[in-house]
C-alpha cells in the first residue's frame, strides 16, 4: 500500500448523494483481470454527459473528490477504488461513506474523510465556484484546511488505519506477524465445522 502523509490540490465537486459503485466502475470493466488501468473507466456512463463534473478541464488532475452522503454504496467491487486511485484521486471527502467501500479504500491507501454536512457543503460550493481552490489534508494532524484562508477542520480516522496510511504498511504482512495466534486459534477450533475439500456423490437435496 502507498503511504500518504499529506494531500494538496484542488477538489472535484461531485455533488450527489448515494453514489453507488456501479456508477463509479460499471460492470463491463469488472471482466479485466488486471489490477491497474481502471482510471479511464471510472464514471464511464456519467462521463458521456459533457456537463459531468469530471469532464471539466478545470478539475483535471485534482487529487481530492468531494461527494455527498453514503458515497460508494452497493457492490463490494474494489475496482471502484482502483478507478478513483488510477484517475489520481488520493482522498474523498463526504458526510458519510458506505462500509465496504470505506474498508476497501483503507486497504488501497485512499483516504475517506468524513466531515459534517455544512463543512462538505462549504467545500463543495467553494470548489464549484473556484475550481482552482486549494485544499490541504494532513494525515498526522488529522486536519483539512483551505489554502489562503483560516478555514480548518479536524477529522477522525481509525488510529490503526492512520498508522498504516502514514507508513504505507501492508495489511497482510502485519497480520502474518500474528501467525502464531492464528495457529493457536485453529487448534482450538471445533472440528464440527465444514471442510470444503470433502467430496460427496449425492449432493442434490434442495429443500
Amino acid at each position: 500500500m502507498r503511504a500518504i502523509k499529506t494531500v494538496n490540490g484542488n477538489a472535484i465537486p461531485l455533488n450527489r448523494a448515494d453514489v453507488d459503485t456501479d456508477q463509479i466502475m460499471p460492470k463491463q470493466f469488472l471482466k479485466r483481470i488486471e489490477r491497474s488501468g481502471y482510471g479511464p473507466f471510472a464514471f464511464f456512463d456519467w462521463k458521456k454527459d459533457p456537463s459531468f463534473v469530471t469532464n471539466n478541464p478545470a478539475y483535471a488532475g485534482a487529487p481530492i473528490m468531494l461527494a455527498q452522503q453514503n458515497f460508494g454504496c452497493g457492490s463490494s467491487r474494489e475496482h471502484a477504488v482502483w478507478g478513483l486511485e488510477d484517475m489520481g484521486i488520493t482522498a474523498v471527502i463526504a458526510p458519510s461513506f458506505a462500509d465496504i467501500f470505506r474498508n476497501n479504500c483503507s486497504k488501497v491507501g485512499l483516504l475517506t474523510i468524513e466531515l459534517p454536512q455544512e463543512d462538505v457543503d462549504y467545500l463543495m460550493s467553494r470548489a464549484e465556484e473556484l475550481p482552482g481552490g486549494n485544499i490541504t489534508i494532513d494525515v498526522a494532524s488529522q486536519t483539512v484546511s483551505v489554502s489562503g484562508t483560516a478555514w480548518s477542520r479536524h477529522f477522525d480516522i481509525d488510529p490503526f488505519v492512520k498508522h498504516r496510511t502514514l507508513n504505507g504498511l501492508d495489511d497482510i504482512g502485519l497480520t502474518l506477524q500474528h501467525a502464531d495466534d492464528i495457529s493457536k486459534f485453529e487448534e482450538s477450533r471445533p472440528a464440527l465445522k465444514p471442510d470444503t475439500s470433502r467430496a460427496f456423490t449425492d449432493s442434490l437435496k434442495i429443500g
Binding site: S76, R77, E78, H79, V81, I100, N103, N104, K107, V108, D158, F160, D171, I172, L174, T175, L176, A179, I182, E186
Partner: peptide, 21 residues
Amino acid sequence: AFGIGTSEVEHVLATQTLTQM
C-alpha cells in the same frame, strides 16, 4: 456473513482472518 473487497479476499486467502472493528 459479509461482503469484502479484493484486498480483503487476498488477506483471507493468505491468513484465513480479517482485521475488523
